[in-house]
Design a protein around this nucleic acid. Structure first.
Lengths: 143, 143
DNA sequence: CTCGCTGCAAATGGTTTGCACGATG
DNA sequence: CATCGTGCAAACCATTTGCAGCGAG
């Protein structure tokens, strides 16, 4: 039985055609796994080139988008607006504590926070609730 | 005693020269006060033009930036990345419940959430903590 | 072989900046 | 009047898209 990454399976659910296992996709995935935290498409592209991998910036963007839709990576935005991606250990809903210098990330769970958010929304009659909770700081090694 | 908006006072602390009371700044401020919730620079510009006000887009951007630095407006980002501004009633730290359709906003306070965030950061040795907590939903009138 | 994937180059679109003119205090 | 503010046009820059060639299945 051939190995097929979860996210490619997921993609195949969306599109009729089958997702293909290309060298580029494998490399992008590897770069993500190697990263200790969130990285931008541009950073990943730089990482890849630095590591000798031959992948176009466009492909990095497209692959990340694909993996995001497949639920295989988490996405977040820096206060500055750049979007970052990360391969997370947990697939269920969680939040992050991110080092603003190196991007190193700690995954967090906060049931109390989720509850608080839902309650506030309900109190005000809002529906289809969604929320974002991100914590930024400087990690010990970067301090 | 002449009326001087808080934010102009604040600006004068930063820059040697005095902030000037121009028609454009007054109009941008008015447009912000008139809004029920968060608006983007482009939206405010459209609002102004629709209301017959003569203000350049560039000026709207610059004024919002200035007011932001002076702490007179709050800023947030839509999941899509657009940045929004709002004149908030509270000047102290707080969060928002925003209607994703019309932008209508409810200001929230959540001491427990702040405490949770700080604690998580401390537990992991992170310093210079900052956090974002935003809740999105659809308000009653937009549902 | 077919159709998706890749990558270059060009387009996008919100935001910022350079510069000369206009207005404030 | 010395400066700051304004607005147009051009610059920016991360991200997206068009298109022709490549390669997986």
């Amino acid at each position: 039985m051939t190995f097929v990454p979860e996210w490619e399976v997921a993609v195949s659910h969306v599109v009729p055609g089958t997702a293909r296992n290309t060298r580029q996709r494998t490399e992008v995935l590897a770069a993500l796994e190697a990263a200790a935290g969130f990285r931008s498409a541009q950073q990943l592209h730089a990482d890849l080139r630095a590591g000798g991998a031959q992948v176009g910036l466009t492909t990095v963007y497209r692959t990340l988008q694909l993996m995001l839709e497949a639920g295989e990576v988490d996405q977040m935005r820096l206060p500055g607006g750049d979007q970052l991606y990360r391969r997370c250990a947990q697939s269920r809903h969680h939040h992050h504590l991110v080092c603003r210098v190196c991007g190193r990330t700690v995954e967090l769970e906060g049931p109390a926070v989720e509850a608080w958010a839902d309650k506030q929304a309900a109190l005000n009659g809002f529906t289809d609730i969604d929320h974002t909770v991100e914590i930024f700081g400087t990690c010990t090694t970067c301090a």
